[in-house]
Write a protein that binds this DNA or RNA. Structure first.
Length: 648
RNA sequence: CGCGGGGUGGAGCAGCCUGGUAGCUCGUUGGGCUCAUAACCCAAAGGUCGGAAGUUCAAAUCUUCCCCCCGCAACCA
């Protein structure tokens, strides 16, 4: 019986085009899966989409689509991307699929029957206009809606609550008893801290929107994201359905189950998910591997900063294997890493082009030149034997440390081990000087043995690359004349292949990238010169002149300006609008120092309802121009105008 | 004191839990080699490990305080 291995990505939320972060998670899973496959496991790999919720409805409306059409579209784009990246997922779960919906309805009903879920009331300040609740901190003391300024009402809404607290101790004990449940350890500590601070009951249903799975016994409610999204990991296996063979095999009786997640969704997976399983009477036998994020040089990715990069662009320009290699190699285990064009180009050039690809081509050339394309394991007594022995030993150590690292999900470390083998192999050429051995005074047996060692090392390194590189290994094995058995992990030891008959025309596996050109090229992609969807804001509807006339705009003279003591983005302005001095709070602190504003004549909307912003009253609004990047510029009135002049 | 992450040679990172020669990749400089895609190999330079105090025979590592950066949250009437 093969051991089983079940690995999952999170299900992605279709809010936009998938960027390098989701590609990282997915490639990482794919690599681990291929590795386990190579180790002889019976594997299963799941990814998918989380397609419910209010944001989907809104995004769909913006694009003039139904939610269903919207998610169908994004799901297709996502599948296309995974195909492009050669992701070998066995299944693609979508939370809108009937097979999923029926399962979570059942789980919900079960928890309800057990009284783990109860119908309760949520009460809070609600703004009817904005259809949203606001917390006391958001309201900052007043009862006015922070979004529209209208008064909020205290509203009670029905919602189902899940008694998380009931399982708190059980969860803590579980985490303690299973030290590997969450890796790396720092993440585990974070979770333990959180759980110890006490778990509140969790609201698990909504009535405010209906794009979700209805609660079976109470269809006014839809099941909120927690139970809906997290349960995908078992609904995709057919849990609770007529055919639950996969669930039986991979989950219930499975050997290893890994959820790979980013650190942003740790809490849901480390707290809510195990508790849901405990309550449902399903064994918690998964583990979490929590990875870091790709960050950009100047912070978070955003189009205006010119630092967004999409995987498909990199694959189209530099090839699939380069991309997969870079993305799983660059992030240190569990921590954040930086994506830079310089790094991308240099990593590919040094590790794949120079060290690996070039080693292959120099070795093949020599085999052809000195032995007509065929070399075999050869005995000799030359002093160089010691170097060969050292290489053999390095290879054995590398295979061992590679597997050890892979078993702990340390893909970058595993690949670093392979790099060290390749480095050691390049070194052998310098140590043995094959061109000297090839001279009449040289030693032909030693020469053959050296070349044989080069090829064996390349063969072993290539086997270790199989989980990551898709196209390259087959090419390399073909060029070396390596058959199936010798290209499998079991054959990754010196001496397994006794003889090589290599191709007479080596091709370069990885073309060299011209550093400066390609760095520029990638930067151009990042600044979105390839025309990103410009997100044209929908034009506002036509209004009657009367509507406009309701708004009172006056010229105001800024007499005083100060930073808001309790907010980073706000300035508190004292503005003379003719009839009186009024206080206006404005969100331009990032763009103007207070002192430069004093003395400016600006346009002020004077009949807005007053609002408190972070504790300061604001009686009006100054008009600003906003660039696509969100940079605000105050619109100044002609100096000839006077404070209080009406604008129309 | 809102939550979290981080500050280690020019760049990006490891080491910190379990104190005891500060390591890796890239870059720089010098040298070697010619089988190979200006690739490969060797060597060197370069760090008071953000700051201060404390614990200790010994601190990048433990404790306390401070400074700075970056996410998230809040804020743009």
């Amino acid at each position: 019986m093969k051991k089983t291995f079940y690995i999952t990505t999170p299900i992605y939320y279709p809010s936009g085009r998938l960027h390098i972060g989701s590609a990282y998670t997915t490639c990482l899973c794919d690599t681990l899966r291929r590795y386990k496959e190579m180790r002889g496991y019976d594997t299963r790999f799941l990814t998918g989409m989380d397609e419910h919720g209010l944001k989907i409805v809104e995004a769909a409306r913006k694009n003039g689509k139904t939610p269903k059409d919207h998610v169908d579209h994004i799901a297709q784009l996502t599948k296309d991307l995974w195909r492009l990246l050669s992701i070998g997922n066995d299944d693609f779960i979508r939370t809108t699929q009937p097979r999923h919906e029926s399962v979570i309805q059942e789980i919900f009903e079960q928890l309800l029957r057990q009284d783990d879920i109860y119908l309760g009331e949520y009460s809070g300040n609600y703004c009817v206009q904005c259809e949203a609740y606001f917390t006391p901190t958001q309201l900052s003391g007043s009862d006015l809606c922070p979004d529209c300024g209208r008064p909020t009402e205290i509203i009670k809404e029905e919602t189902y609550f899940f008694r998380l607290g009931k399982y708190q101790d059980r969860l803590l004990k579980f985490i303690e008893a299973n030290p590997d449940f969450i890796v790396p350890e720092t993440r585990k500590n974070e979770v333990v801290q959180f759980v110890k601070s006490g778990l509140n009951d969790l609201s698990v249903s909504r009535t405010a929107f209906d794009w979700g799975v209805k609660v079976k016994s109470d269809p006014r409610h839809v099941i909120y994201v927690w139970i809906d999204a997290l349960s995908n990991y078992i609904s995709a296996l057919g849990y609770g359905s007529a055919d639950d063979a996969l669930y039986q095999k991979y989950w219930l009786k499975g050997d290893e189950i890994i959820h790979v997640i980013g650190k942003d969704i740790l809490r849901f997976h480390a707290v809510y998910w195990p508790i849901i399983l405990m309550a449902a009477g399903i064994p918690v036998n998964f583990r979490l591997f929590v990875h870091g994020w790709y960050l950009m040089k100047d912070g978070k990715m955003s189009k205006s900063k010119g630092n967004v990069i999409y995987p498909d662009q990199l694959v189209a320009n530099y090839g699939l294997d380069s991309f997969r290699y870079y993305i799983v190699k660059d992030l240190p285990y569990g921590n954040d890493g930086l994506f830079t064009p310089e790094d991308y180009v240099s990593r590919i050039n040094t590790e794949l082009v120079n060290d690996y690809g070039n080693l292959l081509s120099r070795a093949i050339t020599m085999v052809n030149k000195y032995f007509g394309g065929t070399v075999k394991a050869t005995k000799h007594n030359h002093a160089l034997l010691a170097y060969e022995a050292e290489l053999e030993q390095t290879a054995a150590e590398v295979v061992a440390s590679y597997m050890e690292a892979m078993d702990e999900f340390k893909v970058a470390a595993a690949l670093a081990a392979v790099s060290s083998l390749i480095g050691r192999t390049n070194k052998l050429i310098d140590e043995t000087l094959p061109w000297e051995l090839a001279k009449p005074t040289g030693d032909k047996d030693a020469l053959q043995s050296v070349l044989y060692h080069l090829l064996e090392a390349i063969r072993i390194a290539t086997i270790l690359y199989v989980p990551v590189l898709i196209e390259t290994p087959a090419k390399v094995f073909a060029m070396l004349g390596v058959g199936k058995n010798a290209s499998e992990l079991a054959g990754a030891a010196f001496g397994f292949q006794r003889e090589f008959r290599v191709t007479d025309k080596p091709i370069h596996i990885f073309p060299r990238l011209d550093g400066e050109t390609e760095i520029k090229n990638i930067k151009a992609m990042m600044s979105g010169e390839s025309k990103p969807e410009a997100q044209a804001k929908p034009a506002k509807p036509l209004v009657n002149i009367d509507v406009f006339n309701q708004i009172e705009i006056k010229v105001g003279l800024i007499k005083a300006a100060a930073v808001h003591k309790n907010a980073k983005k706000l300035l508190v302005l004292g503005i003379d609008t003719g009839e009186r001095l009024r206080q206006v709070v404005s969100g331009i602190a990032e763009f103007y120092r207070p002192e430069v504003l004093v003395g400016k004549k600006v346009l002020v909307i004077t009949n807005l309802e007053p609002v408190k912003l972070r504790g300061e009253i604001s009686e009006g609004m100054i008009l600003c121009g906003e660039s696509p990047e969100g940079i605000l510029t105050v619109i100044e009135a002609d100096p000839a105008m006077n404070a209080g002049d009406e604008v129309r």
